[in-house]
Simulated assay, not measured.
Amino acid sequence: MLRSIINRLFGMLVVMAIVVTIVFVIVRVTPGDPAAVMLGPEASAADIAALRTKLGLDGSILEQFGRYVFGVVQGDFGQSIFLNQPVTQALAQRAEPTFFLTIFSLLIATIIALPVGILSAYWRGSIFDQVATTVAMFAASVPSFWLGLLLMQFFAVKLGWFDTSGYGGPGASLGNRLNHLVLPALALGLVSSALITRFTRASMLDVLNDDYVRTARSKGMSEWRVVLKHAFKNALIPILTVLGLTAALLISGAVVTETVFGLPGVGNLVVSAVLRRDYPIIQGALLVIAGLYVLVNFGIDMLYLLVDPRVRY
């Protein structure tokens, strides 16, 4: 087990090293001078030269890469051009809305998908199964931003239950801030639940007819215990995989949803940085999102060891 953990940690370091290299190269292969692109066509030569020095673009490629890697290792992703503050500080200030939005969306998706997927597999071929499968296929094809606009129009504009956008004022309470997250979390959670439902159903169908399930029934165990304790537990591996992938996708996929609902999260910050060509922010966000992907996958791998002891060997 220890060897497995060490191998995964080493794999995480390799992946992050590749990501750091790719992020570094992206800016350097941008057509034209990155500093001139950031400042625009009206910038003077002195301004461009000053920005090149500030970004560390005045040295050789190896020198630039060495400085960049050294800064990343220390947690220094550079200075935002337009916000005039460290990238880590800018990301930290926008992390709360994105964090809560991701957690709530995943919670909504899980609460919907797991029961529906289990019942759909248990009642295979029934009307419930057909309706659940159809709805899941439809939900998977619906863009989250379009669903968000529909929810906003009905629940916020028509019924007035929620605010249409924003995250509350500077002195807003936690309850008020969470109230702003209900609609975007529903939009992301409903769309994400489709994939989890289909994976849960497929995984349960693979195990419901296995010998150990029939043996458990023949021993007189209650049906709910057979389904949940024996069948569902052994179907958890692929379900955990899709839950981990969904969580990682929600972190990076909240960009459009945050923009639609005007949430001051990391996604909205990235959109603004792209429009302004604020490359340090874009680079920092890419590294953070990639790091979260890696951490989520590592956490799922560790859950494998707890759920199925066979994975340890």
Rank of each mutant, 00 (worst) to 15 (best):
M12R: 00
A194G: 09
I127V: 11
E96W: 11
T110P: 01
V20I: 15
V307A: 09
G262E: 02
V15N: 01
I103F: 00
I300E: 02
L275K: 07
Q153F: 15
P143F: 14
F100P: 01
R94C: 03
V14H: 04
T30C: 07
R177I: 04
L178E: 03
P41A: 08
V266C: 08
T241D: 10
L149I: 15
V213E: 02
L275M: 08
A235Q: 03
L39E: 09
A43M: 08
R52P: 01
D210N: 13
K219D: 04
A172V: 06
E42K: 13
G171P: 06
S120W: 08
P41N: 13
W146N: 09
S173V: 11
L149N: 10
A172D: 02
G171V: 07
T257Q: 05
L295T: 07
P31L: 05
A235G: 10
A235W: 05
G169F: 14
I289R: 05
L57A: 02
A247C: 15
Q64H: 07
H230M: 15
Y313V: 14
A113F: 06
V270Y: 07
V270E: 00
R276H: 06
Y279M: 10
D206W: 00
D129H: 02
R8I: 03
T110I: 02
S120P: 00
I26P: 01
W224R: 12
I48P: 00
A254H: 03
G168P: 07
A45I: 15
L178T: 00
E223M: 10
T257A: 08
A172W: 06
A92D: 03
I108A: 08
R198V: 02
V14K: 04
R177A: 09
A50M: 03
K158E: 15
P238E: 05
P31A: 10
V72A: 10
H230D: 12
L107A: 07
V213S: 01
E42N: 13
V73M: 12
L303M: 14
D47F: 06
L243R: 03
P41I: 04
R198S: 03
A36F: 02
N7K: 15
K158Y: 15
I5W: 09
D210L: 11
V213F: 06
G59K: 14
L292T: 07
T110A: 01
V69W: 10
V29Q: 08
W161I: 09
V14P: 00
S272L: 14
L286I: 06
I22P: 00
I5M: 09
P170N: 12
T246V: 14
L13P: 13
D33V: 07
V69K: 04
T30M: 13
S192A: 14
S252R: 13
L269N: 06
I237M: 11
V15L: 09
P170F: 15
F145I: 08
G175Y: 04
V260W: 09
N234A: 05
I237W: 04
R198T: 01
Q64K: 03
P309K: 03
P184G: 03
T88M: 14
S173D: 09
I108P: 02
A194N: 06
V157S: 14
L286G: 06
N179Y: 11
V207H: 08
V266A: 05
A121G: 04
F99H: 00
I127G: 02
D47N: 09
Q153K: 15
G117F: 05
